[in-house]
């Protein structure tokens, strides 16, 4: 089961320093925060599409196309319940559709889709080790960064072992699809318990293996990924900074807001 979005490659996106990629996440969050107007969000969306094509991440965008569409649609719908502004086109006790609520809902949906796009770009081009190194470089304590990367590594192992248990239970005639949603949910308990116990059996051995390799011995641990910022990284930081400033200026000039009337 392919749960990771990482796509092997040597594109400019892959070669960016992990800290710059974390900065890119922040710049994207900052940019979409200031604007609600869908038109103002379009340039960022286009920029992301170009980056996905040029950075070799497009396959993941295509794979998740229905999720992107769903995010925009359902977010727009939920805001139509709460954003009761503007002259109504349809007015019911629950949903009030107006030009303003359509624009507002669509804008917020687009925002979330662009945030999803940023994370897809990040995950498509960043290995877990790079992410861990980036976190440590940003000042996250080594042990916390280690726990995050170890957890990332364990996820596919646990999923694989759960799938093995499911197959074994099926062979013994256990029916996972019988009953309503709650009954089906409960039927997965016999799958989770062996995975849980297997994981706990490993816990002591893992802790000993870590300590045998000097985990917790003190001092600053070194990392295999320990490279300096290059010229291209600095340029990317500057461009992303420019993008963040531009979006703040759009907000400041009043072009990012939606006026109900």
């Amino acid at each position: 089961m392919p749960i990771y979005l990482y796509i092997e490659g040597e594109s400019w996106l892959h070669r960016l320093h992990p800290v710059v990629k974390v900065w890119a996440l922040f710049a994207a969050f900052w940019s979409v925060y200031w604007v609600d107007q869908p038109l103002a969000l379009v340039p960022l969306g286009l920029l992301m599409t170009v980056a996905a094509q040029a950075g070799g991440a497009w396959a993941n965008f295509y794979r998740l196309r229905y999720l992107f569409a769903g995010v925009v649609f359902f977010t727009a719908l939920s805001w139509m319940v709460f954003y009761r502004q503007g002259t109504p086109l349809i007015d019911t006790p629950l949903v009030r559709v107006s030009r303003a609520s359509l624009l507002f809902g669509f804008g917020r949906g687009l925002k979330l889709a662009e945030l999803l796009g940023t994370s897809v770009l990040f995950l498509s081009s960043t290995k877990i080790e790079e992410f861990g190194a980036g976190l440590t470089r940003l000042g996250v304590p080594y042990r916390v960064g280690f726990a995050i990367t170890l957890a990332f590594r364990l996820v596919p192992l646990f999923i694989d072992s759960a799938l093995t248990v499911v197959q074994a239970q099926r062979l013994r005639g256990y029916e996972f699809r019988r009953g309503g949603p709650l009954a089906r949910m409960r039927r997965y308990v016999p799958v989770v318990v062996p995975v849980f116990m297997e994981a706990l059996r490993k816990a002591n051995a893992m802790a000993m293996a870590l300590e045998a390799r000097g985990f917790g011995a003190g001092g600053r641990p070194t990392s295999l990924i320990d490279r300096e910022l290059r010229r291209s990284d600095r340029m990317a930081v500057a461009l992303l900074g420019g993008l963040a400033v531009a979006y703040f200026l759009i907000y400041y000039a009043g072009y990012g807001a939606i006026r109900p009337d």
């Binding site: 042990r143 280690f146 726990a147 995050i148 170890l150 957890a151 990332f152 590594r153 364990l154 996820v155 192992l157 646990f158 999923i159 759960a162 989770v192 995975v195 849980f196 994981a199 706990l200 490993k202 816990a203 002591n204 893992m206 802790a207 870590l210 985990f215």
Partner: peptide, 15 residues
């Protein structure tokens, strides 16, 4: 051991 249990809890949750 607590660090390992933290990672195991996180991985089980995410899995």
């Amino acid at each position: 051991r607590m660090v390992v249990l933290c990672a195991i809890s996180a991985a089980l949750y995410a899995a």
